[in-house]
């Protein structure tokens, strides 16, 4: 399946664009997606941390992704 992933902050700079379209296995979890991204963009491994948001909320590692999910990478936040 094709996943669309929104990128922010440092992850936008690492990937070089604000949105990424990725071919993922039909059964892909959040943890699996994170591994897939670390493989494709090794610079992600150097971050303090990063999380995945699905439909505007933090997603658990075992959440199974769907093609229509609104996915975003959340690098370490620094608001306030």
């Amino acid at each position: 399946m094709k996943l669309k992933i929104a990128l922010f902050g440092i992850t936008k700079e690492i990937v070089g664009q604000p949105e990424l379209e990725l071919d993922a296995p039909t059964e892909q979890s959040v943890a699996g997606l994170m591994d897939q991204l670390r493989e494709k963009y090794p610079a992600l491994r150097e971050l303090t941390s990063f999380a995945v948001a699905v439909n505007s909320d933090y997603a658990a590692d075992d959440y199974q992704l769907h093609e229509r999910d609104e996915i975003a990478l959340i690098p370490p936040v620094s608001g306030g």
């Binding site: 922010f8 440092i10 948001a53 975003a72 959340i74 690098p75 936040v77 620094s78 608001g79 306030g80």
Partner: peptide
Amino acid sequence: IDTIKKVVPIWK
């Protein structure tokens, strides 16, 4: 403020 700094997706 402490919790906002930990969870809100805003980047500086």
